[in-house]
Amino acid sequence: MYLIPRLIGLFVYVITLGIFYLIICKIDKKDLGKVLFLYTIVLSIIAYNFVPAVGNDLYRLLIAMHSYTQESISQIITTLKTSSTPITVLYFYIIGKFSKDGLLAAVTAFIFYNNVFYIFKKTAIKYSISSKNIALALLFFMSTGSYMEVISGIRTMLGISIVAVCFYKEEIEQKSIVLNIVWYIVAALIHPVALATVIIRFLLLIYQSLKIKNMISFFILFILCTGIFILGKNYINLMSEKAINYVTTENRHWYLWEFLIGCIDMFIIFIIQIKFLKNKNYTTHDSKMIRYFSFIKVINIIILISSIIEYNTFHRFAIFSSILINPILMILLNSKNENKKIYNIVFLSSIIMLFIACSRGNLCSLKFFE
């Protein structure tokens, strides 16, 4: 169904990815930010013109967005108070008021890729990553087909991208977590999966504070967590119930080809982790990278467990892991000892994932007309 529209949509996506891959291979790093921003704009334009099929999440979410825009201010305030995801309600309400359905996917794509490409850009500068290796890391991430999750699923990808960029700023750039508290709250109130990543982040942070016997950091975190719990207790309870129901529900979706893409993605991520652990320059001397690496290990344990019991959790956390792994992948690619071998493995796996995503994965739903 819709063969020609889908072929055109896939052609646009793949050609765009190929063009920006080649551009990044050739550019000077000082221009990387501009090129990635231009790519973000292009991806947002593609998202704006995406026409969802009846079975796509976006089709259902647009109906929800239309219903929110019909409510009065007092009604929307009541909805915000009673909803387990008030930020999503507010997000839909504001975008819906512009009466342009394409904006929901476009704005989400713009925010998501701005967050993800921030990590790319800052890592490239901080660790002097070569242009060729930056381009390959981009190809690897974009070949997973997660683009459809971004522009159709909307909420989960929006939330986890916020958590990922906050975590990167705190661990790699050593910025205070206090600056990101509001963003963590926003992410947690977007979707249960984002809430789960926020909880994991704070639990790990508390554990690390105790481990290094930094009691001042521990007490600050304890006070912050207590304050957030007291102020947002009702929302946290609602989100927790929704998260538990989300994982334990009997009506579970499972799609073989996306599961296969996720397995290939995670297999490569595990190889990256193993190779990186052998790189003593970072695992021995770079405490920031050790803490960053610890969070990814926790996420990957969850992915392994969920691969057996719950597809949706596996699928979304795998995408989250593929965002987080990019700095480590780029550093590893830049290593003289591992460069050629890892480069070939990642490149080949990227082509395989992209082929599956375009031929049988969710990405093949991308179309601009019917």
Rank of each mutant, 00 (worst) to 15 (best):
S128F: 03
F112Q: 01
N49M: 09
E71G: 05
K81H: 11
Q75F: 05
M65P: 04
F50T: 10
K121A: 08
Y118T: 10
M148S: 05
T85C: 11
N49Y: 14
G102T: 02
S130L: 07
L158F: 11
I162L: 15
G153I: 10
E149S: 13
Y168I: 12
N49K: 04
G55D: 09
F140H: 02
L58F: 11
T69G: 04
V54Y: 09
S130Q: 10
T88V: 09
G96F: 05
L103V: 08
P52F: 14
L61I: 15
V42K: 01
V163H: 07
V89R: 12
F110L: 14
C166Y: 13
I63S: 13
L103W: 04
V163A: 07
F140D: 01
L103C: 09
G96K: 00
K132I: 05
I73V: 15
T69E: 13
K97M: 06
Y39D: 01
V54N: 09
I87W: 09
G159F: 12
Y118Q: 10
E170M: 15
L62W: 02
T156P: 00
G159I: 09
Y68T: 05
I111H: 04
V54K: 15
Y147T: 03
A47W: 02
V54P: 08
A64T: 14
F110G: 06
Y48V: 02
I95E: 04
Y59E: 08
Q70C: 15
P52I: 11
T156F: 08
C166N: 13
I95Y: 08
F141M: 07
T79I: 10
A137S: 14
K97W: 02
S84Y: 13
R60D: 04
I134Y: 06
I162K: 08
A164Y: 12
I154D: 00
T88M: 15
F117E: 05
F140Q: 02
K100L: 15
R60V: 08
C166Q: 03
F98A: 09
V116Q: 01
I111L: 11
M148K: 04
P86S: 06
V165D: 10
S83C: 12
S72F: 04
I111E: 03
Q75P: 06
K175F: 15
K81T: 11
N114M: 09
T123C: 03
S146L: 10
I95S: 03
V116M: 03
L61K: 14
T156S: 14
A109W: 06
G96H: 00
N56S: 10
L104R: 04
L62Y: 05
P52S: 11
L62H: 05
N114L: 12
L80E: 03
M142R: 10
